[in-house]
Every structure is written in structure tokens, then in C-alpha cells.
Write a protein that binds this DNA or RNA. Structure first.
Lengths: 325, 325
DNA sequence: CTGAAAGCGCTTACAG
DNA sequence: CTGAAAGCGCTTACAG
């Protein structure tokens, strides 16, 4: 910019005015400046501009894993809101590791992103307290913050699982298995709670051997599914509590004699399976949009108390959940 | 930092040394500085640091649509490489709109990202020439750059489509339909080329009515599929040239009397369909990793000529492509 | 071992 | 209408 000013024979401020389209520059001067800009190939450095301005016109979205369809749908929605606010978006994946989440979150804060959207991997977010205190709004997504009071936008996990389980009960099942994620994960615990609530509401006992929680790798889920669906005590229906569990379970269930299945999370092609897969669908785009709007509301000065917002889930019946015992 | 220096009664440079763990500070001084940092809640502003340093320790990835499984798998791979280089990642979606691609790319450049990874939407990238000239490396992904010579990492689109089509021919088909994306999209044109090459190699004529290219919305693909698979001149097999086309086609084909199908791009659950879906799978993770490594090689000083790198595709036979006429 | 000065590339606040 | 000075929050290059 200095070079442009020198080339055009004007002051720095005049170049700045032309670059920013501010008024108060005669056409002649502006023309000379524009020529110099052209000749020198000048392009304003926004990072420098933003340093002076005090904001960075960027927000960060910290996900569990961007390659997961849930995360990527979330990202797209956040991106849309950010774009409408002329904000650029950083994304990063924690890989479900609390330490990596912290590392990335603090790196984003060190860059002074205007705001932070976090799908938490860890359960203690006190490390963000100084950042929040210094004015960086943080909104949690999909799972609530741990050990701090902060905005969170969540799916109706318990309600969805309750409805999915009740759907199986309504189709005559009394012995229903629940295969879920690690209990330490909030969504997993909530879904289990919904499952138990539905069983209790129907006056059905839950045999603890029907409930299997743990990592979602194929081996463990396969073993759980095998155990639950074989032998004299086999369940007649399965509630699989997230997309990875559902996928793994479907791969392990013999296609010819599959129990009734309701899965949490929708899957592409789910309607083309035989029978179609009945699911409790989340709305990741709504989650992302709502969380992003909340973040920008905070940036716009909203000082109301931290709130927990809930996005509804939808039961989609396609066949697998309507099989009778 | 100024406040910390004042509180600790030292110079700015000493604070800087402590914050960066540089040697040459006595334990006593360092201790006082650390106390001041703690007391004031000081956290270094990396944006400011990077302004002085001349780099931003960030790269940008410009996608067609991050919510697409292909794009998100790509992102994850890029993220991994960037993380290994201590770089943060900006992501953005062009939505297949050339103008938005340009807008986002230039916004990232204005932030002075260290490098840019682009899945092009437009076909003229001369607008990036000044950026490239000023030292920002740009690597194109999935599709080559238009009107400029630049690094590009591409799938073997033609080869994959050729192999997929040859697979159908090997299973006895002579009348094979091709349903593709808009011809203006490089990958679409390449896949059509592969299809025609396989037909030609087998000495089979291509009736131009068998080839249907256009937008990938369900209505258009459905109409194409209906037209191709009905009537006395119906084809006996279909090559669907990307994941959206395949999905739409499967939804429109009567499950009971489906022609043979080979799709380009793998889909989750593809193996659980009846019959399983035979596909030509791309390797988005390999594409992303390779492109990112190329970008960082450029940043590390690699001045070799721009190159076009190719990632192989894999034919996965699962049943739908092995149906005989 | 320590720090004052200059500078990264811009904008803000002000004066002419 | 125009520009010189100061500053955003750091680091670099240097001197003591």
C-alpha cells in the first residue's frame, strides 16, 4: 500500500479510501491510485486490515469428524450462515479426542476467531472460560458443554429414541435390544434413556443383557448383535443408536432372517434396502443453522443467559421397524 | 503484551521470549513474566504474530459442496496433512457456481492463506494468476484448472468409466446406456469418454439415444432412466456416472426388474442392496492427501513444472453389474 | 541476559 | 478533498 501511495503520489490514507470505496476522493486522484494499484498488482491484505479492526471476520467449527455425513451436513449449514455474515469458516476435526479438541479450540481462539462452534469430544470445557470471558462467544453443538454453562443446540435424542422404541413396541415387540455408543458420550446416554423410558412407559422390563454400549467399530457391534439375536433369549427387535452402529449391525445381521430394526440417524439408500430401513432421523442442517445463528446473535450483542436449544427428530417408517415378532 | 511487560517490569521482547519459550531469560525474570501473564489472563494473538511473520499458517480448501460425501472425505484427508504441518484449515463451498468460487478464492487470498486447494466450479482461473505470481501456491483437485497451467490431482475418470463399461460388456451387454452429469463438468466429460472408449474397443456401436447428460436432479435422471430402460429399444445395462445419478436412478428403477447397473462413486450401504451395487470407486482420501502434500511441497520450495497427478479408481463387483441381459 | 526501535500492512482519529 | 501520526499486537534485527 505504501508502494501504491508512492507510485500515485498520494498519502496512505487516500489509497485506503480508494481501496475501500470511501467517499472524499476526487475522480482524478482516485484514477491515479487505481492505475498504481493495477500497475503494481496490489491486493489488500485483509489479515492486516482485520488486525487493526479488532475482529477477524472468521468463525471456527470444531467437529468430531468432518467426513461423517452428520458433521458435513452440519458444516454446510454453518457455512451458509457464516457466508451471509461475510465470515470465513475454519473447520477442524477432534476425532473424538478431548485433547485434540482443546488444542484446536485454543488454536482457533489464539487466531482470535470471532466465535467458536464446538461439537464437544471432551467433558470439561473450563479451559474455554478465559476465552469466553474475554468476549469470544462459544456455542456447543450436538452435545452440551462439560463443567461450564454455555449455549448448546442439541437434537431431541431421548425423545427420538423413545419414539423409535415405542414404535417397535407398538408393532408387538416386548424383547427389544439396544446397541449404542459409549455411555460417556452425551447423545449415547440420552438415547439409552429414551429407550428405557419407552420400555417403562409400556410396562416392559429391560433385561440388562439387552443393552450393549461401547465403541462403534464393526467388530464390537457385530459381536453385540450376534449375542443379542441368537439363542433362546434372543430379542425380536433392535434399536441401533447411531448411524455407525446401524451400518455395522446391518452388515452382521443375516439378510434372510433379520429382526425388526429401528436406527437412530438416517442413511443414504436407507429407503432402497429390502425392507427399507426405519429410522429416527436427525436434522443436522437445522442444528448447524440454529447454532450458527445463535453464535451471530451473541456477536451482535445478545447477552441473555446461556440456553439449551432442542431440534426435533423424525421417525421415518420404511419397513424394517414394522416387522412383527 | 504491553500490559504484561509493564506488570512484570520488563521489556516487550522479554515477554515475547517467555511466551515463545526462547532461551536467554533468567528463571527469575521468566517467573515474574509468567505471573503477570497469569494475572492478566494474557493469551498471545496469533493473527498479529503471523502478520509480522509473513505467513498465516492456514490453507484454504474450496469445495463444490462440503455436505457431499466425496467432498467431506476429501476435507478430512486435507485436514490431516494440514494438521501435520501445523496449519489451520479454511473450508468453503462454491455450490458449483463459478462466481462464488472466485469470490471465495479471492477472499482466502486476501487473508493471505499460505496455499489454496480448489475443486473448481468455473472453467477460467486466470483470476488467480496474480495470486500465484505473488507466491500463493494453488493446487486443483478433482478437476483441472481452466485457462491456466497449474497443479491438479485427478481421479482416473476415463479409465474407471472404461473399466466399468467393459465389465458390463464382459457380462454380455451390448446395449448399454450412459447417464451422466453436465458435459461442461470435466469429470463428466472424461467418464463419457471412458464409456465410449470401452464400447469402441469392444467394437460396439453407441446409439446416441443411449447417452443422456444433464443436471443430476432426480426428475431429470428419472426421466432419462425411464426413457432408456423402456420400449423395444431399451438398453440392458446402465452406467450411471456419479453418486447423485446413481442414487436417482436406483430410486426410479423398478426394484423387481432392474437392468444391470454400474455406478461411478461408491455409496454407503451399496453392499447391502439387493443385489449389491457394483461401482467404480474413487479414493477421495487419497486425492485430498496427495493434493495437500503437493501444496505443502510447493510451500517448501518445490519449483518444478505444474503437473497433473492421477489417482486410480477401483471396480467393486457386488452383483448389480454382473446381471446378464 | 535484556530491551528500545522499527516494522508487518493496514485503519483510526485528527488536523489541515 | 487530503495526509501525517499513532496504533492494532506482535517479531525482527540490533545494541548494550
Amino acid at each position: 500500500m505504501k508502494d501504491v501511495a508512492a507510485a500515485a503520489g498520494v498519502g496512505l490514507k487516500t489509497v485506503s479510501r480508494v481501496v475501500n470505496g470511501e467517499p472524499g476522493v476526487t475522480d482524478g486522484t482516485a484514477g491515479r491510485v487505481r492505475e498504481a494499484i493495477e500497475a503494481l498488482g496490489f491486493r489488500r491484505n485483509d489479515s492486516a486490515r482485520l488486525l487493526r479492526t479488532g475482529r477477524t471476520a472468521s468463525v471456527a467449527l470444531l467437529l468430531e469428524d468432518i467426513s461423517d455425513p452428520f458433521s458435513s451436513a452440519l458444516s454446510r449449514a454453518v457455512e451458509r450462515v457464516a457466508a451471509a455474515e461475510d465470515c470465513l469458516l475454519f473447520t477442524g476435526s477432534s476425532g473424538e479426542r478431548a485433547e485434540r479438541e482443546r488444542e484446536l479450540a485454543l488454536a482457533f481462539c489464539a487466531r482470535r476467531v470471532d466465535g467458536l462452534l464446538v461439537v464437544p469430544a471432551g467433558d470439561d470445557h473450563r479451559y474455554l472460560l478465559p476465552e469466553i470471558a474475554s468476549g469470544t462467544p462459544v456455542v456447543f453443538l450436538d452435545r452440551p458443554a462439560g463443567a461450564i454453562d454455555a449455549d448448546a443446540v442439541l437434537s431431541d435424542n431421548a425423545g427420538g429414541a423413545r419414539r423409535g422404541t415405542a414404535h417397535l413396541i407398538a408393532h408387538g415387540h416386548r424383547r427389544i435390544g439396544f446397541v449404542g455408543d459409549l455411555r460417556a458420550i452425551h447423545t449415547a446416554a440420552e438415547r439409552e434413556r429414551g429407550y428405557r423410558a419407552a420400555m417403562a412407559e409400556a410396562g416392559l422390563p429391560v433385561d440388562e443383557r439387552w443393552v450393549d454400549c461401547g465403541p462403534t467399530d464393526r467388530a464390537r457391534v457385530g459381536e453385540a448383535v450376534r449375542r443379542l439375536t441368537t439363542g433362546p433369549d434372543a430379542v425380536t427387535a433392535l434399536f441401533t443408536a447411531n448411524n455407525r452402529v446401524t451400518l455395522a449391525a446391518l452388515h452382521h445381521l443375516p439378510a434372510d432372517r433379520r429382526p425388526a430394526v429401528v436406527g437412530f440417524d438416517d442413511l443414504e439408500l436407507a429407503d432402497l434396502l429390502t425392507p427399507g430401513l426405519t429410522v429416527v432421523a436427525q436434522d443436522p442442517a437445522a442444528l448447524g443453522a440454529l447454532a450458527a445463528r445463535r453464535l451471530f446473535a451473541r456477536l451482535a450483542g445478545d447477552r441473555s443467559d446461556p440456553a439449551r436449544l432442542e431440534v426435533p427428530t423424525t421417525l421415518i417408517a420404511r419397513g424394517s421397524g414394522e416387522i412383527r415378532p
